[in-house]
Design a protein around this nucleic acid. Structure first.
Lengths: 362, 362
DNA sequence: TATCGAAATCAAAACGTTTTGATTACCAGG
DNA sequence: CCTGGTAATCAAAACGTTTTGATTTCGATA
C-alpha cells in the first residue's frame, strides 16, 4: 500500500507538507502543491482512515441497529439512512439485532470498540435495552428511530394520530367489533397506535363493544397465525357484536399475513371483514385488495434521524467529558435539565380497497 | 477513554504484558494475569479497533454493496450476510449503490480507504463496473453475489434452470404466447433466466410463436408500467397467438407490479393471464393470487458468499503481493491459471395460484 | 537598517495497539 | 558448576496519520 510517506518522498517534501496540502490547514506554495498532487495521483495514494481515525479520535462512521432487514419497512429506512449518512461523509456499520437483546449488547460493544461516532437505533422489543443505556452513559450520541423512548432523543411519527385516523374511519363505517393485532406488547409504537385507535373510535361515534387484542412480532407470520388461532377459538364464528368486522394490524407485514389467513378462512376482504395496516410500504398499493394503511414519510424519518444524530455529534454533545461539564454547570448555576429532542413527523391515512362497512348482521 | 496504558498502570505491569494477556501469545503468570483481567474489568477497558487495525493491517470488516435495500430480496440477503459475517467476527459496512455506477465507484474508494478486508458485491446494472475491477486489481478479495461475472468469484443460483422449469410448466399448460418482463438488459441473471425459459418452453413442447421481451429495472414500478405500456400498444387487445397468455417477470417485484396493472386492466390472473415471478420472497406466498415463482435458497446463497469471501481473505489470496507471487510462480514453473470459483446453488419451482392454462381463444 | 509578521516548510510527538528482541530468574541436564 | 532452555516480563519500534512548535526566508514597515 502506498502511504503518505511514499508521497512525500516522491514529491521531495516532508510528510507534514503532504498532509497540509490535503487538509488545506496551512498555506502551501503553488509549485509544491502541484508536485504533491501529481505524486498522489501518480502513486494512487489513498489516506488510511484507520490511521486518520486514530489521531482524530473519530471514525466518521455510525452504527445502525435494525431488527429485521427482510421487512421492507426497515429495508427502506436503512437505505435512506445510509444514503443520508454517506452524503454527509459518514459510513454505516450494519447490525442485525434480530429482536435479540443479547445480540444487541454484543453489537453495541463491537461498535464502541470501532469508535463509531454515533448510533442509529431501532428498538426491536421491550425498551430500553440495558446495553444501549450503558453506551449512552459512555457518551456515545444515540438517536432512536421509529420509537419513542422518554430519555433518549428520537425521531418517529405520530402513531397516536395514525391510530386515531384509522379509528375514526372504521367507526364512521359502522364497525363496533374489532380485532387489533399488535406488535410486541408494551412497545410504544404499538401502544400509541392502539390508544389512538381507541380515541378515534370514540370520536367517530362508536365506543366499541368489542375490541380484541393480540400481541406478537412485527411479522407476516404473526398476522397469519393470529387469525388462524382466533378462528380456531371461534372468534369469527361468533354472532352479533361478538364477531369482529374489522382487523386492525399494527403494521403492514402483520396485515399481509392476516389477509392471507382471512382468505384461507373464506372471509373476503373487505366484504366480510375490513383490514388495515400501518407504515405504508410499497406493496400495500400493489396487493389485492390494496391495503388501507397509515403512510409514514419514511425517507423523511430516516434523514431527520441522521440529521439529528450528526448535529449531536458535531456539536460535541457527546464525549465522556459530559459528566464533567454537567458538574461544572452545577457549580456555576442552577442546572438546566438537558433537552431531549423528540422529532415527531405527521402521518397520512391512505384509504384503499381493504375497508368497507361491516356486513349486515347474521 | 481508557486505554491499554491505563490498564497496565492499574495492574502494575507493562503495556506489552496486558497485550499478551489479551492475545495469549506469550505465557503470563497466573497472578499477573488475574491482576490484569481485574484491572480491565474495573476500568471497563475495550480495545480500540482502529489501533488494532493499524498494526494488524486488517480492519476485520467487509464492504457490502447492494443496489436497493427496499427490495425485500436484497434486504433478506443483506441480513443473512451480515449475520454470517458477524458470526465470524467481521463487521459489515453498508453501501447503497442505487444502481448508480458513479456511486459504486465512490463507495469502493471509501471502502479501500477504510481498509476493508473484502467486498460482497451485488451488481446492479451492466457488469462489470470499472471501479470494481480496479479494486480487484488492487488486491481486495471480492465475491460477487447473485450474479455471474466470468472473471470474478461468485455465488449465485442456477438461473437457467429456474427459467427452464418455468418454461416447461407454462408450455405444458399450453401457453404459446408470452410476455417476458426482464430486469436490466444484459445482466447475466436476466439473460440466463430468459434463455432457460426458452429452453424450457421448447422442452415442454411449445416453440413459442410469440415471445415479447421488455427490459428495465428490477422494481415493481417497472412491471406495472410495462404492462400498461403494452396495453396501450394494443398487446393485450390482439387476438390469436398475438395476445400473450402468460407474463413471466424476471423477479418477484416486477411480478407484483405487473399483477396490479393486469388487475387495473380487468385482466384476471390466472384466468385471463398467467403470471410468474422469480426469487421467492416472502410476500409471494401471501398475496392474492399467490405467486408461482422460483425459490432461491437466499440464506444459503448469503452464507456461502460470506464463507467464500472469508476463505479467500484468510488464505491470503489477497494482498498486492499477489502480482509478485504470480511472477514468482511464472519463473518457477508453468503458470497455473488461477481458479475462479463459482458456487451455483439449486432453485426450486414453487407452483401457486397465479398460473393456469390459457383461456380459450376468442 | 533593524524589526516584525506572514508564508512556507520541516521535524517530532502523539494517537492506541501489536510485535519483537532483551533481560532476568530459574531449573534441569551434563 | 557450567550450559541451555524456558517462563515471565519489559522496553522500544512500528503501523499511517494529524498537529504543533520550530526554523527559514522574505518583503514591508518604522
Amino acid at each position: 500500500m502506498t502511504t503518505i510517506k511514499d508521497v512525500a518522498r516522491a514529491a521531495g517534501v516532508s510528510v507534514s507538507t503532504v498532509s497540509h496540502v490535503l487538509s488545506g490547514r496551512r498555506p502551501i506554495s503553488e509549485p509544491t502543491r502541484l508536485r504533491v498532487l501529481e505524486a498522489i495521483e501518480r502513486l494512487g495514494y489513498r489516506p488510511n482512515r484507520l490511521a486518520q481515525g486514530l489521531v482524530s479520535k473519530s471514525s466518521r462512521s455510525l452504527g445502525l441497529l435494525v431488527p429485521d432487514l427482510a421487512n421492507p419497512f426497515f429495508g427502506s429506512m436503512a437505505e435512506a439512512m445510509e444514503i443520508a449518512a454517506h452524503d454527509r461523509g459518514y459510513s454505516v456499520i450494519l447490525c442485525n439485532t434480530n429482536l435479540d437483546p443479547k445480540r444487541e449488547a454484543d453489537y453495541l460493544s463491537m461498535l464502541l470498540s470501532r469508535q463509531v461516532d454515533g448510533l442509529l437505533y431501532f428498538p426491536g422489543t421491550r425498551v430500553p435495552n440495558r446495553a444501549l443505556l450503558e453506551a449512552v452513559a459512555a457518551g456515545v450520541p444515540v438517536v432512536v428511530v421509529d420509537e419513542r423512548i422518554d430519555n433518549l432523543p428520537g425521531v418517529f411519527v405520530d402513531n397516536f394520530d395514525g391510530g386515531r385516523q384509522l379509528g375514526r374511519l372504521l367507526a364512521q363505517l359502522g364497525h363496533r367489533s374489532l380485532l387489533f393485532i399488535g406488535g410486541p406488547e408494551g412497545l410504544p409504537t404499538v401502544t400509541d397506535r392502539l390508544n389512538g385507535l381507541r380515541a378515534g373510535l370514540a370520536e367517530g361515534g362508536s365506543a366499541p363493544t368489542n375490541l380484541l387484542l393480540r400481541f406478537g412480532e412485527y411479522r407476516a407470520s404473526h398476522g397469519y397465525e393470529t387469525i388462524h388461532v382466533c378462528a380456531r377459538e371461534g372468534v369469527f364464528a361468533a354472532v352479533g357484536d361478538e364477531r369482529p368486522t374489522a382487523v386492525v394490524a399494527a403494521n403492514d407485514m402483520i396485515a399481509l399475513g392476516a389477509l392471507r389467513a382471512l382468505r384461507e378462512l373464506q372471509l373476503q376482504v373487505p366484504r366480510d371483514c375490513s383490514l388495515t395496516g400501518f407504515d405504508g410500504v410499497e406493496f400495500t398499493a400493489m396487493i389485492t385488495p390494496s391495503l388501507t394503511t397509515v403512510q409514514q414519510p419514511s425517507t423523511r424519518v430516516a434523514t431527520a434521524a441522521v440529521e439529528l444524530l450528526l448535529q449531536r455529534i458535531e456539536s460535541g454533545e457527546n464525549h465522556r467529558d459530559r459528566a464533567a461539564q454537567r458538574q461544572q454547570a452545577h457549580d456555576d448555576q442552577a442546572e438546566v435539565a438537558p433537552v431531549i429532542p423528540h422529532v415527531v413527523l405527521p402521518v397520512t391515512l391512505v384509504v384503499r380497497e381493504s375497508v368497507a362497512p361491516p356486513p349486515p348482521q347474521r
